[in-house]
Design a protein around this nucleic acid. Structure first.
Lengths: 135, 135
DNA sequence: CAGAATCCATCCGGATACTG
DNA sequence: CAGTATCCGGATGGATTCTG
């Protein structure tokens, strides 16, 4: 998730690829989308996220939240109460990003079966026989 | 890039997030998009890719190519000549994927400045002072 | 030319324990 | 409640060498 990806001195259509990566770097993380989705419905608290985003660890939740906040995709609001209360909300920019992702979702759904089969075929083809027909 | 992400037993809108991840897992890799872009113009040879996708190592090129091929995003054609010649071509499915990414590219371009500034602001805000004004 | 194999540094991410 | 800190295994990815 660290950047440095400046897209400078990149020529040809690879420049476009570089721009895509700018977006992917922000959403490519294992948990980013899950959090974004949850936060796009309205303010969500830390513990709510911990439950909604299944399988996430406390650590990764914190880290991913920080990154998203840093990129301006999430807004963090702290209520100075005791016990503390923190709410995360998706920013307009994040909502737009989420909209951009629906195209991708559609693609994934359209080709889910094809991909699964392509993999199966590939694995069948490249099964390392090594002559061992041991069973 | 290893899967296992079956999206089973995922409820609510998190199921959607899971579907998005299916797509992202295939393109989220550091080099996938670059290769896909290069191969979408027509057949490309190994060494051509090595040059076009700037900064990629031989190893990662091979690995990413294998993954893309396995997912049915690239077609690999071998010419049994000497020296050998191998051409990679993006499949229709990959071209559709690339189209889906255009939306994302647009998003990245629209908000590039905003993100850069959000980061700067965040870093300014969270600069760890620790009281050390040591200069 | 198009890779496979090996070695090694770094990063990602999970588990656990502690805190204001 | 909402984190932070630490430890650690596995994955990611670069550099280099060898080969059909």
């Amino acid at each position: 998730m660290s950047q440095g990806n400046s897209c400078v001195s990149v020529v040809g259509q690879q420049a476009r690829a570089c721009t895509v990566r700018e977006a992917l770097d922000r959403v490519g993380g294992k948990w980013s989308v899950g959090i974004l989705v949850a936060a796009s419905q309205g303010p969500v608290r830390f513990t709510e996220l911990e439950r909604q985003v299944e399988g996430i660890s406390r650590r990764m939740l914190t880290l991913t939240l920080r990154n998203l906040e840093r990129d301006g995709l999430l807004h963090r609001r702290v209520y100075p109460t005791v016990p503390p209360k923190v709410e995360y909300t998706a920013t307009p920019m994040a909502l737009e990003l989420y909209e951009s992702l629906v195209t991708l979702t559609a693609w994934a759904e359209r080709h889910r079966a094809a991909i699964t089969e392509a993999r199966a075929a590939y694995d069948r083809e490249h099964a390392d026989w090594t002559g061992s027909r041991a069973d």
